[in-house]
Design a protein around this nucleic acid. Structure first.
Length: 215
DNA sequence: ACATTAAGTGATT
DNA sequence: AATCACTTAATGT
């Protein structure tokens, strides 16, 4: 995890995208937040006061049902910001999703009032925001595709692939139960599919740990 | 040694 | 693909 001053971190992440003026503005109004893995940072219904920039780590964004059922929608990674908070500016004031840190993460919280202000002020900001909305929308389509057209086995492979990408590790510390919850499936179904993937040589299994080999 | 939690399995819908 | 009921295996106290 980064331990440098904010200015340098922003420089590292956004220098190629943003002008020095915008970087400076971000540094002035942004508030740095360190989040521990597993920490819930947004619940459905909560008002959105900030747009979070992911400087380091990864955030998992989920849809949540009242009775506790969840579904993983997508991950936010370094350099990303949340589409929910962008749409917030256009009228929706409350979150429709739950967000939880997948790993220890570093966020820059920018009050949402600057979102609109900077769109007029900084052309590169406008381009970045529009691009973010596009990327998130693409991701949404991908999620819908997987729900509508893929069977459980394909969904599970996509899940494991995404998790490997986001964590940067091929050793995933997770249980069949947790995977089932993320995918809104049942543990038994996941266990059977995991066993199949193992027999095909895609993964190695241990207690509380999955080793992804051929993805 | 015992309790708890994770993972495997057959049968049924 | 989900659920039930049960077994087996791994881990912590």
């Amino acid at each position: 995890m980064e331990n440098k001053p904010l200015g340098e971190i922003l420089e590292d992440r956004f220098a190629y995208l943003f002008s020095p003026e915008l970087l400076y503005a971000l540094e002035q109004v942004g508030e740095l937040r360190r989040i521990k893995a597993g920490q819930v940072i947004m619940e459905p219904g909560n008002p959105l006061a900030f747009m979070p920039f992911i400087l380091d780590g990864a955030i998992k964004v989920m849809r949540e049902e009242k009775n506790g059922h969840e579904l993983l929608l997508y991950y936010l990674e370094s350099g990303d910001t949340c589409a929910m908070s962008l749409i917030c500016c256009m009228g929706v004031k409350k979150s429709k999703v739950k967000a939880e840190a997948e790993e220890d993460s570093l966020l820059l919280m920018v009050p949402i009032k600057y979102l609109e202000e900077w769109i007029c002020k900084f052309p590169e900001w406008r381009a970045y925001i529009f691009d973010m909305v596009r990327v998130r929308l693409d991701e949404f389509i991908e999620t819908i595709d997987s729900l509508a057209f893929m069977n459980m086995e394909e969904r599970l492979m996509k899940y494991l692939r995404d998790k490997v990408r986001v964590t940067g590790k091929t050793e995933l510390e997770t249980t069949h139960q947790e995977i089932a919850e993320d995918m809104n499936s049942s543990r038994v179904v996941i266990s059977r599919l995991m066993k199949k993937l193992e027999s095909e040589g895609h993964i190695h299994q241990h207690r509380n740990r999955v080793e992804v080999v051929t993805f």
